[in-house]
């Protein structure tokens, strides 16, 4: 039997349910459906969390070349930085928990890009990456082209050079060399010195020790020869490129390799703990290279450092940066490393 009070009560209940369920449905519906339907561009919501908390979700997106998408990032845990590379120059900076930041992008050509975190947000920060696959709309099923072949890497492979091998220097300078003096000596002897030394491509494929031996064989005294090598090995990175390399190093490398190149950044301790557990068979595993140690560095070459930066280590804890840096950026970094042995600390930027 329905009495009027009974009916009223049911009506009240209906109103209550309507409010309880209706408000969230309307809000969420607006956020996730209406807004997307109204928006002229496709909106992709991405959550960015520290790698141990899931990293980027979704961590792989497909976009057609020429299509404009709006990537909307929200962050549940700690401050992250969002950047997309290589070579796009997209860095939307820090995103704090609770904030939503978006960026609208159009990828012109098919290819693979990487969304990565640009803030050291956790000991595993450098694992925080996601991929953006840009496909050709006329052949949506074709795999996007991988990066164009890299002449430096192909050349290393062709010569059978193992970039993971240690390359200790047979000889090192007795006192820290002076690039300034080296520049003066070079200026006065320019015409009589071997021409190869002045070719940047030759220098990339030869170690400072090789160049030094050449100069000594040429009749130059040993300390002078080191000064000349110090000058030449630091000469191709100057001005803007030097400033850029220094920023890249501080943001991406100093946490492990140390700002002074001592290999003892805060990330080194974490790596060591992780590698003790993993029993990697590489001797350098878990030990970020000390770029300031001439014994370790001077037998190496820019091309080897370049290759290591792009490919990363084989389970050693050295991340690969080939998916987020352009070849040019990787060369700048490889050349920057020489400064830790050749430029006195007080003259570094």
């Amino acid at each position: 039997m329905t009495t009027p009070t009974n009916r009223l009560e049911r009506f009240a209940l209906a109103v209550l349910l309507f409010i309880l369920a209706g408000v969230p449905v309307a809000l969420l519906g607006y956020q996730y459906f209406v807004r997307l339907a109204l928006s002229p561009v496709r909106v992709i919501d991405i959550t960015a969390a520290a790698p141990e908390a899931g990293g980027f979700q979704p961590d792989a997106i497909r976009v057609a070349a020429g299509e404009t998408v709006r990537l909307r990032f929200s962050v549940p845990d700690v401050t992250h930085g969002i950047a997309i590379g290589p070579g796009l120059g997209i860095d939307i900076g820090h995103v704090d928990p609770g904030q939503v930041r978006e960026v609208e992008v159009t990828f012109d050509r098919p290819g693979r890009y990487t969304v990565y975190c640009s803030t050291w947000c956790s000991p595993n920060h450098w694992r925080m990456r996601g991929t953006i696959e840009v496909y050709d709309p006329s052949q949506p099923d074709a795999l996007p082209p991988s990066q164009p072949p890299d002449p430096a890497l192909e050349s290393l492979a062709a010569r059978g050079i193992n970039i993971d091998a240690e390359h200790p220097a047979e000889t090192i300078p007795d006192t820290p060399p002076s690039p300034g003096r080296g520049a003066e000596i070079t200026a006065t002897h320019q015409n009589t010195l071997p021409a190869d030394l002045f070719n940047p491509a030759w220098r990339q494929q030869h170690s400072p020790v090789e160049a030094w031996s050449m100069l000594v064989a040429h009749g130059m005294n040993q300390p002078d020869a080191w000064d000349v090598v110090a000058h030449l090995w630091t000469s191709s990175l100057q001005g803007d490129r030097l400033a850029q390399a220094s920023t890249l190093y501080a943001k991406n490398c100093a946490a492990c390799h140390g700002e002074d190149g001592s290999g003892t950044g805060p990330g080194a301790a974490v790596l060591q703990a992780q590698h003790a557990l993993e029993h990697s068979d590489m001797p350098q595993a878990g030990k970020p290279t000390a770029f300031a140690d001439p014994r370790i560095m001077l037998g190496g070459r820019s091309e080897i450092y370049y290759a290591k930066i792009r490919r990363g280590g084989m389970g050693t804890g050295m991340p690969g940066f080939g998916q987020i840096f352009t070849p040019e950026e990787s060369w700048m970094l490889a050349e920057y490393l020489w400064r830790f042995v050749f430029v006195p600390a007080e003259n570094r930027p």
Binding site: W120, A250, K251, A254, A255, C256, H257, G258, E259, G267
Partner: peptide, 10 residues
């Protein structure tokens, strides 16, 4: 005063 401090960079 406000600054960001990156690990490894004093």
């Amino acid at each position: 005063l406000n600054t960001r401090i990156e690990p490894g960079v004093s």
